[in-house]
Design a protein around this nucleic acid. Structure first.
Lengths: 239, 239
DNA sequence: TTGCATACCAGACATATGTCTGGTATGAGT
DNA sequence: ACTCATACCAGACATATGTCTGGTATGCAA
């Protein structure tokens, strides 16, 4: 029986298994056997055993379809594909909300436009911490944020000066750059400034209790070809 | 035995299964049974059977862990979560390339920076059609494309006037807006203009055979918090 | 050529996993 | 209260799936 050089089939098997895992469909040994034309199930199993010993896969002994990508980032990963595959496995699905109204940060069906795949950040990340909105106006043009862009937002009720945030002002969501007044300004009610990045728009100045901070913008996306149907999330015009 | 109202456990089971599928780890019936505290395997199986009849899942009879999200977009989906779950299932993993050199559009290990999750577009979409690059210069600032942004590019060797493209000029990749000369200009060798969106940069004018068009930019992303380690993909400065 | 590591094969068998049949009882509506 | 749909239970069993043992032969280096 002709054989490939050492390691070559192993690599091919790894890519096959990884592809199936990323599709959510881990293969059985016999599916691998068939895919590669092996005559023995054991051949497939030994390749997987080799991959486990190399740290590229892990599995639960005796369970069906249990080979999987390692679930934790080992401290000393070699700088090759497994690392990237692991990152791929931590994709989060974040709701793109159609409209945000006062207090209603929700993934209720009527407001959910789509699910957006987002790379997980850190081990504690969870899709519940994030939401996405579509930008409608030109107020943040100077920051390279244009109408139609999608902002990925991490839910948080505080942020730092200079952060780009989503805030509710007069029950309307807006994307602006946050500037906080000095501690103690206006008594317990600190002054908040929401700065546009476009000279045609005015700074919004108010007290902290007049603003609800919904979160911090952590990513901006622009689709030059729209994968989604067009849907506007909020109004905005020069004041 | 107390029971939940009709449909409630079904929905919870669906979310559990979907979560496991998105992790690449489809559950067995007994794992579902255990997760929900059912006394009988059959209870779990019936919920899955119900979900299959609702079109939310499909499966292969008699195979282990074979319940999965539907693999094709049905024509008439109800406007609720299954639709979005299906979209989630069509996330592609696109390679973020560290550097593009002449002719070397490759996902070879040394040039692969990360895998980027991207929403699939259309049924024929495949990750092989796409690659991602990191923008380095300010030449496209006017178009809201800033240094450090990631562009998702669909591989194509032609594009339309007005498209933002990635092109190889003098063996260096650059992102510009494409303008094509009139048909027949310069004989069979049509004139090509690559326009910056920043007055500090000059238009690149050359013949079609001096330029290799690598693809069309279909999406731009900016990470305000970097999920990746910083890695620059190409040089660019005012000419 | 020899030696070695390992890529392959074959078969038996344990058990994990799905399926089916027959049943109870609970929530909700009338 | 009655009825109905269905959410649950229990058990038996077929087979899919993984595991182990014993083996051959091939590619590669010395």
């Amino acid at each position: 029986m002709p054989r490939t050089p050492a390691g070559q089939t192993r690599e091919s098997v790894y890519r096959f298994v990884r592809g199936r895992l990323l599709q959510g469909q881990p293969p059985t040994l016999r599916e691998i056997q068939e895919a590669f034309g092996f005559r023995a199930v054991e051949t497939a199993r030994e390749h997987l055993t080799g991959l486990v010993s190399e740290g590229k896969l892990e599995h639960d002994k005796g369970r069906s379809r249990s080979y999987r990508l390692p679930s934790h980032l080992p401290n000393h990963l070699p700088n090759h594909l497994p690392n990237h595959a692991i990152r791929a496995a931590t994709t989060l699905l974040v709701p793109l909300l159609g409209r945000v109204q006062a207090g209603a940060l929700t993934t209720a069906v009527e407001q959910l436009e789509a699910w957006v795949p987002v790379q997980a950040r850190g081990r504690g990340s969870s899709a519940d911490e994030l939401f996405a909105l579509r930008v409608r106006g030109l107020s943040m043009q100077g920051a390279g944020i244009l109408p139609g862009d999608i902002v990925i937002v991490r839910k948080q009720s505080t942020a730092s000066t200079g952060d780009i945030v989503v805030a509710l002002v007069d029950d309307e969501a807006t994307v602006k750059r946050l500037h906080k007044g000095p501690p103690g300004s206006q008594g317990p009610n600190r002054r908040i400034e929401l700065h546009p990045e476009n000279p045609e728009f005015q700074v919004i100045v108010c007290a902290a209790d007049q603003v609800t901070l919904l979160g911090k913008v952590i990513e901006v996306r622009r689709h030059l070809e729209a994968p989604f149907e067009s849907f506007d999330s909020f109004d905005e015009s020069p004041e």
